Amino acid sequence: MSERPSTAPSDTAPSDRRTFVSKVSAAVIGGLITIAAPIAGLFPILDPLRRRGDTRGMVRVTAFAALPESGEPRKFPVLDTLVDAWNRTDNVPVGSVYIQRTGDDSVRVLHTTCPHLGCSVGYNAAGRGYFCPCHKSSFALDGTIADPKSPSPRGMDPLEAVVRDGEVWVKFQNFRKGSPERIAV
């Protein structure tokens, strides 16, 4: 008599099933890692492009009470948070402004840089105006050109400002020099 193969369940079937499940699981996990890692790596690379459209908001410059009630302008540094591609630096001096109290809760803010060539403009208390020492431009208290012979193509650059909760907040920005139009840069 010949011996017939046994029809009893084999011990290899559960092993084959386990091997199949582990191979499929490994393929799925490997595929997810293969896809997820490059996508996760794109976020820090593309982050500066995402932030490019952000605009800088208002910066707190001083307390309103620090301004003289006489309306005489005071010069204040502007400290802001600078953010480049991956770094953030707090309290960095980015410029300065003249702030003048014009009412009970209003101010006039002028950029301290001359619109002619970018020299620093000083305040002349005796003359009640501003003066640029580089090319002799002179400006009235409101920032307009005081002397028609002034080489400056426009008056001093006013900046947007609000008084909020007893503090002066300024939207600080720079403008193109030497141009009769006020063009933000």
Rank of each mutant, 00 (worst) to 15 (best):
D54N: 13
D54C: 05
T55L: 02
R56S: 08
V61A: 11
V61E: 11
A63K: 13
F64Q: 04
A65E: 15
A65W: 09
A65Y: 10
S70P: 04
S70E: 04
E72I: 13
E72Y: 05
P73C: 00
P73I: 00
K75V: 14
K75I: 14
P77R: 01
P77F: 01
L79I: 01
L82I: 11
V83T: 12
V83M: 09
D84A: 01
A85M: 02
A85P: 00
N87Y: 09
N87V: 12
N91K: 14
N91D: 15
V92R: 11
V92Y: 04
P93Q: 14
G95S: 03
S96F: 02
I99D: 10
Q100H: 03
T102E: 04
D104H: 09
D105S: 14
D105A: 14
V107Q: 05
R108D: 14
V109P: 13
L110Q: 09
H111W: 07
P115I: 11
P115Q: 11
L117Q: 08
G118R: 04
C119H: 04
G122K: 13
Y123N: 15
A125P: 13
R128P: 11
R128H: 14
Y130Q: 10
F131A: 12
C134P: 08
K136V: 07
S138L: 04
S138D: 11
A140W: 02
L141I: 12
